[in-house]
Nucleic acid binder design. Structure first.
Length: 454
RNA sequence: UCCAGCGUAGCUCAGUGGUAGAGCGGUCGGCUGUUAACCGAUUGGUCGUAGGUUCGAAUCCUACCGCUGGAGCCA
């Protein structure tokens, strides 16, 4: 009876310019309403935000069962895509056959309306079926694609740096240990202590000094006991690394990619962005447009310190040269003073890692932090120390033994060049673009201290 | 890890020492080309967990767990 008919994604059906008959659809019931002689079924398949309205007439043989369909059930529909008689949608499907693929009983936790992100987080396996999270994860996918597109268009080579690493001192916090046994690491799987990577930067530098412009994009792990809306134990990071590139080139690229990614998602995910603007953050679109249009502010650390001192603002924490800028200081710069993304550069060497290049003043290093309103630091990077003797000295200053980093120092022994790079937090970028304020809500199954469910 | 707040029905919340509540959802019935439909009825609870105070604890105290906001660390 059923001639084979390949299913049409709901996104495609809704974009159709002509009626289609027959049409095959499959998806999950979002809601159902009864009318006198038929039932309206709102069908969603995740291909887009919108649902497709299915008309199930009471002449269908399984109409009684269809009337018992509840939110969450999966169905397969064959029918005709026709112009809708009702208001609110262009198309609807008059069904001539509806198969109930998988029922959902009344314990299905998702209702038609109003769930908090906190509740949905507890049912992370079902939340992609909600409007908000469907949008977040479609945008996540698009953003990942746009990142590759950005770099590939510019001749960067994608490098897969190791996830299991022996580098235990990359200056980026606590590491997860990788082991198959308890104590003697010389007899362990890798015959040495290994960890999950906290950054692919050191390895990316090796490839940049061969392929000129490279980037990494992969998972990163930090075992810090951070309990904030902006930190996760497992997250994704983008790390470009460019040979023959100084700090200015680095700042240019950071600004360019932030603008590119916003522009791409604005263009490719308009319905999702509309939903975020409506339900997550009313000022989102205006803020993103502003960011794309204006040049980012650039200010040296010492000028930023002066500006903060003269601001007249009462800060909880002291501002002084040599101290790290506190969150409240960064917020003031980006949210109150400049009201746009701000790149702060040339930080005191004492508060930055060993690999950053010492400036001619002998006091600062060529570091950058790109701060955005609402999120804070979204990019951290630097020009790398390419001079062998200076790098060894920096290592000793950071109580590291240069002998442990022979391969990294080799990069300075053989054909060293000035080079720069940065780390862009993928989830932080996604938060900035969607307006979603908790990092746990932009990761499919978030890992945070004390929490690794699913 | 530190500071503050919160934890009551499937969900959102009210209840501040004396019989456990509402709205939404679900279920049943009615109405209806509906749109977070509407109308009526009905269903629904180990008040986060474990101790303690009290004649009596959702309510007061202690510890723990979880969540939220802020801080530190950073992306």
């Amino acid at each position: 009876m059923d001639e084979p008919l390949s299913p049409t994604p709901i996104k495609g059906a809704l974009q159709s310019t002509i009626p289609i008959e027959p049409i095959q659809l499959q998806g999950w019931v979002r809601t159902r309403r009864d009318s006198k002689d038929f039932s309206f079924i709102e069908l969603n398949d995740g291909s887009c935000l919108r649902n497709l309205q299915i008309i199930a007439k009471n002449t269908l043989p399984n109409y009684a069962a269809l009337q018992r369909l509840t939110t969450g059930a999966s169905i397969s529909v064959r029918g005709a895509l026709v112009a809708s008689q009702g208001k609110g949608q262009k198309w609807e499907v008059v069904a001539d056959k509806i198969d109930i693929v998988g029922g959902a009983d009344d314990t299905y936790p998702l209702q038609k309306k109003g769930h908090t992100p906190e509740f949905l987080r507890e049912i992370a396996h079902l939340r992609p079926r909600s409007n908000l999270f469907g949008c977040v994860f479609r945008v996540r996918s698009r953003l990942a694609f746009a990142i590759h597109q950005f770099f590939q268009e510019r001749g960067f080579v994608y490098v897969h740096t190791p996830i299991v690493t022996g580098s235990d001192c990359e200056g980026a916090g606590e590491l997860f240990r990788v082991t198959t046994i308890d104590c003697d690491y010389t007899k362990d799987f890798f015959a040495r202590q290994t960890y999950l990577t906290v950054s692919g930067q050191l390895e990316a530098e090796a490839f940049a000094l061969a392929l000129s412009r490279v980037y990494t994009f992969g998972p990163t792990f930090r075992a810090e006991n951070s309990n904030t809306s902006r930190h996760a134990s497992e997250f994704w990071m983008i790390e470009p690394e460019m040979a023959f590139c100084d700090l200015n080139g680095n700042m240019d690229l950071a600004e360019e990619i932030v603008k590119y990614l916003i522009t791409d998602v604005r263009k490719c995910c308009p319905e999702e962005m509309e939903l975020f603007a409506k339900f997550v953050d009313k000022e989102l679109l205006a803020r993103l447009d502003f960011v794309v249009e204006r040049a980012f502010q650039r200010i040296s650390y010492s000028d930023a310190v002066d500006l903060l001192r003269k601001s007249g603002e009462k800060f909880e924490f002291p501002i002084d040269y040599g101290l790290n800028l506190q969150s409240e200081h960064e917020r003031w710069l980006t949210e109150k003073h400049f009201k746009c993304p701000v790149t702060v550069f040339d930080y005191p060497k004492e508060i930055k890692p060993f690999y950053m290049r010492l400036n001619d003043d002998g006091k600062t290093v060529a570091a950058i932090d790109l701060l955005v309103p609402g999120i804070g630091e979204i990019v951290g990077g630097s020009q790398r120390e390419e001079r062998l003797d200076m790098l060894e000295e920096n290592m000793r200053g950071h109580k590291m033994d240069p002998a442990d980093y022979k391969w990294y120092l080799d990069l300075r022994r053989y054909g060293t060049v000035p080079h720069s790079g940065f780390g862009l937090g993928f989830e932080r970028m996604l938060m900035f673009i969607t307006g979603v304020s908790n990092i746990r809500d932009v990761i499919p199954f978030a890992r945070t201290p004390g929490s690794a469910e699913f």
